[in-house]
Design a protein around this nucleic acid. Sequence first.
RNA 1: GUGGCCAUAGCUCAGCUGGUAGAGCACGAGGUUGUGAUCCUCGGGGUCGCGGGUUCAAAUCCCGUUGGUCACCCCA
Length: 455
Amino acid sequence: MPGHTFQSPTGTRDFYPADAALRRFISESWRSAAIRHGFEEVDGPTFEHLELYTVKSGEGIVSELFSFTRAGGEKTYALRPEFTPTLARLYAAKANSLPKPTKWFCTPTFFRAERPQRGRLREFMQWNVDVIGDPSPAADAEVIATCVTLFTSLGFTPKDLRVKINHRAALAKWFDSRGIPEERHAKLLALLDQKGKLSPRDFTVKLAEFGFTPEQAEVFQKGVIRVELGSGEGELTVLGTTVAREDIGVPTAAGESLDLTFFSEAVRPLALELSQAGVLDWVDFDLSIVRGLAYYTGMVFEVHEASGAERAVAGGGRYDNLIELFGGPPTSAVGMGMGDVVLALVMKDKGLLPDEARLMELAGQRPDVFVISNGSPEADAQVRSTVAMLRKAGLHARHTYKATKNVGKLLQDAAGQKARFAVIIEGPGQCQIKDMAGGGQRPAAISEIVAAVRR
RNA sequence: GUGGCCAUAGCUCAGCUGGUAGAGCACGAGGUUGUGAUCCUCGGGGUCGCGGGUUCAAAUCCCGUUGGUCACCCCA
């Protein structure tokens, strides 16, 4: 087929230099935040046995996976769609010799056979942060605080992003206290999860089947709960209403028409931990955050853009039964995942994407020196050897590939490649060193360049 | 898996009711002013995503397909 052109497969991306620099910037930001919080980097294979995924999620998951067999082979594999099963496998294999808690993170690539749409692709990077073996709310708060550290490092504020927290176990107790039978809990959770997609009318009608009044339905509908630190002895008050926060676009709840005693009992210790971690101002308690996963056992959370734009930036929660499910000892765990796709979208929305020079800088790819000749044959003869000398000294040095001897065009070339300094060779051992950012320029010996440019 | 919209140069797009393809920017070469600018000249590039159909004639109309995009399902 002459003239046939190849396109990248559906839902995958090509990373040209600027894209690769952004990707590296994001993954480095992830690493840095996790390491600051004491997490250690791990990783596993890009593909696993298919059964690793069907054990947890059932056969239904297979249609969402890229699975394959080796030609002539019998085993079925799948490209990894998430990290938790691999994490559980790694932990289970060495559980006895690992510290408690074990704090691991990774920033790998995942694959899901879904139809791509805004914020969702078939190949993406995801930051995973997990605390294994610590059942306390302090571990829950640690995961969220790590998230917040990242947001802060990227330039976000609590007005840009909200961490929305709920508690599965607390909800269950609370439902019990209202006389809702346990077998109906899942259905009610599913209904809460559907909140945004149902009309307020339909939502109210369906909630009524569980014994909630229209007023109470409205609390769910708008349902952000404000947790406040009481004055003095670190007391916490969980209110059934929010304080108006129009400035960050969080809706105000309808009134104190729900008894949230049970909920507040479970949430109080977590709120205290979040307060001590210094991140409570990023947090809203939101009754409608459910998460799809059946395996969450306690705290669950999602991070959303404050006005509700885009998909969830991050999500996670406590899964105290999962390690055991994968063959490990009974072990509590809490973790979260954050994808690069939505994160980059929200950064762009907020004007927080660094420019190209900054990205190259952050990725360690920005040229230190761009060596050009003033056009004389003697200077021409020294360009290569000067570049080689600078590289030997550990600097990132470049020269032009253009034919022109026009100094202005060569400086343009240097600027286009975002070089920090330009060096114009003037004669034997002599040059001008030009600071491309400030524009200042001074004569110097070629032997002085390294010291002048190194930082 | 279902549906809406979209597809012309590297990028942003123009191309009317069908008459055999353009601009700006970018890129490349050269020139000028010794300094990232301005200006001038020249150039590479597109079988109009792909395949079929209607027609004397298709970028344009029709069907299919691939890809993109947005939503549904799902969302680990």
